[in-house]
Structure formats: C-alpha cells, structure tokens
Design a protein around this nucleic acid. Structure first.
Length: 498
RNA sequence: GCACCGAUGGCGAAGUGGCUAACGCGCUGGUCUGCAAAACCAGUAUUCAUGGGUUCAAAUCCCAUUCGGUGCUCCA
C-alpha cells in the first residue's frame, strides 16, 4: 500500500515514493540548541518520528537526516549571558535534546549534521550562487540572496511577492541590501562573535544556508521529502528552495511535510502566557513520558492539537489500559491456557489490522489508527473474560500490538526510570524545588525500592489470609499514598507505580 | 490590514454527500471482589458554532456571520 501524505508544495495529498532503490530519503529541520526543548518542538519531532516509522511499516527503507543548528543569534546571546564558549553551551543543549527525544521514544535519524561542522559546504554553495550573481556582498561583509534572480520564489508558501511588500515588517535598516526581501546567506562578523575566516570574508552562516548545504551533502541535490514545523514554511523553507535550486538548477525536495502547531489550554503557548512547558517541566510534575508521547500523537499532524492537563490525564489512563491489556495477553500466552475460541475474532483482528495500516497510510491519521487498536482490545478482553480466547487469536493480537507499538511505542513501561533521570538532572542543576511532592515521594530520596514494596505487599497478603482486612487495607492505603497501586487478581497480586 | 486553517457529546477527537456520528477519557448502573483495583456489560450527541442556500439526500458542498489559531518578524 502506498503512503499518502499532504504535500505543501503541490497543495495536495500525494503518494510519497522513494526515488532511489526503495529508500525514502528525507531531511528534517532539527533544533536550534539554545535552550531545553518544549512540547511544541517535540510535537513536530514526534510526528516526524511517526512518519519515519510509517515509512518503515510498509517495508520501505528510510534515510533520515536532521540538522542541529549550533550557531545563531540566540545561542550567541544565551552563551554570552551564561559566560560559556558557544561550543560548550550548545553541547549541553544538544545532549539534552537527544535525551528528551529518547525519553519520548523518538528514533534517531540515520545522520545528524551540525551547522558548525559543515561551514565549508555552505561557503561553497554561496560561492556557486555568487558566480551567477545570485549572491552578492554588501557593506559590513554580509552576503545576500538576490530574490529577483529566482522567479519561482514563493512557490512553496504560495506567496505573492507584490502582496507581502506592503504591511510586512521587513527589516531594512540593519544592512545594506539591494532589495528589502533579500535574505542573508552569510553574516559579516560583529565584535566578539564567533566567526569563521573564509573566502567569503570573516563571518558566520545565515540560518537558511545550513539546511540547503547539509541536505544536499547527505541526500544529493534532489531528494524525496523535507519536513519541519509549519512556521518554517516561510521564510525558511522557501529560502532553502531558492538557494538550492538556484545553485543546482535541479528540483530540491519533491515533497514538503509541515506539522501544525499546538495550543496549550486553548491558547498559544508562550512564556508570557505562563503556559510554556519543556518535557522536563512535565516529568518533574509527575506526568509520564509515555502519556506525553501518546497525547502529542493523538491528533494527526495536519491538525492543531490542544494540549491540556485533562487531556494528559486521559492519555495516561489510555496508555495504562493498553499496557494492562498487553500484559494480560502476554501472561495468557505464557500460561498456555486456551480455549476453542470465538470464530468471529480472527477476521475481526485482521480487519482492524488492515484499518490500522490504512489509517496511517492515509496522511498519517494517528487518531483513526489507534481507534482500531482499542476495538480489538475490547473484543479480546471480552473473550478472555469468557475464557474463550484461542491460541491463534492471542498470537494474532500480540502481532497486532507489535505493529501498533512499532508506530506508537508506548507499551514498554520506562516511565519510572525516565522520571528518575529527570529528577537526577534537576538535582544536578539545583532545580529540585521544581519537582512535585508526589514525584519526590515516589522517586526521590527515601522512596521505596522494589524489594521493600514486595515485602509490604507480602505482609498485606498474609494479613488478608488471616482475614485481618483492617491491616491489609492500611498497608494498601499507605502504598497508594506513595503512588503504589495494588491489584488482586486470580493469578496473584500485582503492584505498579501510578 | 492581507492570506490561510479550524469550530463535532462533559473533555479530547475520527468521519468530508447516503450504513445506528468511530475511538479515548470521564460519568451513571450492573457483573466480579472481604472491600477495592483491573476487566467486561449497559447507558451517556435524533445531532455536528450560528443563519441562509444547493441536493431525492449535508457534520460533509456554497455564501454570510461569530469565535479560535497561524503566516506576512532567523518561534517546532
């Protein structure tokens, strides 16, 4: 089945195909490492993760390249304020970015490219543009792209250049440009800033040039898809197209994928609104990484998502239900107790599996895909309750769950260790006061270890056997207050961290 | 100001001309349990922002209005 995706460039849903040997080659604009990533950043990277996983789901290969912008105005500003060399500063936030990505189950791209390690490639690209008089040097040592030389400018964002001249706030005073909309390829050095001494002069790269240079370095002049947040469509991606195509005279990326922004509690997320959250903020407040992933993926990438704490609680419950179900089927497989089964179940599972795949291949409809899984969950739980689950149906269910998890990646419970890591980070940074009392009680110093919990659970089981329910309930309530939930079942007592 | 996108139950959300409007969470009742938890069963929108229109038929197409978001600023 082909994977169909909306293409910003054509304005239509189109099949995403690999132009080279069954491997989809795509580039994603990565983070600017000037601070910790926030949930808006991660919504984009999470949906790009689903894209790459969905590509692989169809047996297709993937070559995914992502840049890390490790030199820019904000980095220079923040590093200076922190009194650190920019290399040291960006290293810290680059590491943090990948730690957070890992926590959210985001797969690593096949290649990660840092801007500062690809300066010669950028310089060569600008030189090529200069040789055709598309790039020009202005006073102050900066180089600009002459938009007048690229008539297709605006084709991605569907901008009419006439239209944006009025009303647009264009920064014309700072440098000496030939036309207001010409954009910087290379910035002349300013006192005290990080710079490179190159054939273009002493300076540093403009923002857009790095993505053109690195995308083409790793993927060639033409490749399958280019991804990023919706804000990058203009001017960033438009400029990338202009620089690249003007230099190579070949089409740059064929397919453009843009992830829409999220809202937080119905409002734009911003520091001034007080609704700005990094992943680490949320983990320290006791929210689970898996629930954050599931929530950020609950609404398809093409739609705005409203991130709310009620929604996060709902997704926490949903993930928990999926995991309980998964463990139940797994335990049933181990126990090997099967029945003849319900003849209707096998075709139902097959249908839902097809629906799951079809939903993803229909422009990555994650909402519809997960609905199919819950249909199976209910049917199989009901069969298991009636002791009518066959071995074949249990196996088919596990295979479906594996397929589900190859996209959503929430079944394995790493939440406790991830929260512990966040706590360790907060301690190292002197930010332990940002952790909620519940998180500190559950995971902080003096919290219960597994062995201690097991002992208390055994003590309660003994009390129950002696019909000392008051004592049993007291232990259960104590543990619950520390975030430990006890469940009695036919197969024995289970406990889990809330 | 100009351009674009969206509005579906208590909340989130799928569905874009015709099956009882998916699914998740929540809530109510039931089964199970010493009581819980988990799980299951039943119930929970005659209705899709509002007003008009097209059609045999509209949540789905068209127009207007209201509200929310985004871009035109090196914010994912």
């Amino acid at each position: 089945m082909p994977l169909k995706l909306f293409n910003t460039l054509s304005g239509q849903v189109e099949e995403l195909y690999a132009s080279e040997a069954g491997t989809v080659r795509f580039y994603c604009c990565g983070p600017t490492v000037y601070d910790y990533g926030h949930i808006g950043n991660f919504r984009t990277f999470l949906h790009v993760d689903v894209l790459r996983r969905a590509i692989k789901l169809g047996g297709r290969g993937v070559r995914h390249v992502m840049n890390v912008t490790d030199v820019d105005d904000k980095i220079i500003r923040n590093a200076t304020a922190a009194g650190l060399p920019i290399g040291e500063y960006t290293e810290k936030f680059t590491r943090a970015f990948f730690e957070d990505s890992d926590a959210l189950g985001i797969e690593r791209p096949e290649a990660v490219a840092k801007a500062t390690e690809n300066i010669p490639e950028m310089v060569r690209l600008i030189e090529t543009l200069a040789s055709e008089d598309i790039a020009y040097k202005a006073e102050g040592g900066s180089w600009y792209f002459r938009i007048a030389k690229f008539p297709e400018y605006g084709k991605l964002a569907k901008k009419d250049l006439e239209g944006i001249e009025d009303g647009a706030r264009v920064d014309v005073d700072e440098y000496d440009k030939d036309a207001a909309r010409d954009f910087a390829l290379w910035k002349g050095v300013k006192p005290g800033e990080t710079s490179w001494d190159t054939s273009l002069g002493v300076g540093r790269p403009g923002w857009h040039i790095e993505c053109s240079a690195m995308a083409m370095k790793y993927l060639g002049p033409s490749f399958d898809l280019h991804a990023g947040g919706e804000d990058l469509m203009f001017p960033h991606h438009e400029n990338e197209i202009a620089q690249s195509e003007a230099a190579t005279h070949k089409p740059f990326a064929r397919h453009w994928f843009h992830v829409r922004f999220l809202l937080v509690e119905g409002r734009k997320m911003s520091k001034s609104e007080g609704n700005f959250y990094t992943l680490r903020d949320l983990l320290l407040k006791g929210h689970k990484a898996s629930a954050i992933r599931f929530l950020l993926l609950s609404v398809p990438y093409s739609q705005q998502l409203n991130f709310t704490f009620d929604g996060l609680a709902a997704e926490t419950a949903a993930v928990e239900r999926l995991r309980t179900f998964y463990q139940r089927v797994l335990a049933g497989m181990k126990a090997g107790t099967f029945a003849e089964g319900d003849a209707a179940l096998a075709p139902m599972i097959a249908t839902k599996e097809a629906e799951f795949v079809a939903a993803l291949e229909n422009d990555l409809n994650t909402a519809e895909a997960r609905a199919a899984i819950f249909d199976v969950l209910r049917a199989v739980n009901a069969a298991a309750d009636k002791n009518s689950l066959s071995r074949a149906d249990a196996e088919a269910t596990l295979a479906l769950l594996a397929k589900f998890d190859s996209i959503f990646a929430v079944l394995e419970d790493r939440d406790g260790e991830l929260t512990k890591s966040a706590l360790a980070w907060a301690e190292a940074e002197g930010r332990l006061d940002e952790a909620s009392p519940e998180v500190l009680a559950q995971f902080g110093a003096g919290s219960l270890g597994d062995a201690e919990i097991d002992a208390l659970v055994a003590e309660r089981t003994l009390a129950k056997k002696q019909r000392n329910f008051a004592k049993a309930d007291a232990i259960r309530n104590d543990l619950l207050a520390k975030g430990i939930l006890i469940e009695d079942s036919k197969d024995g007592v289970r406990w889990k961290r809330k």
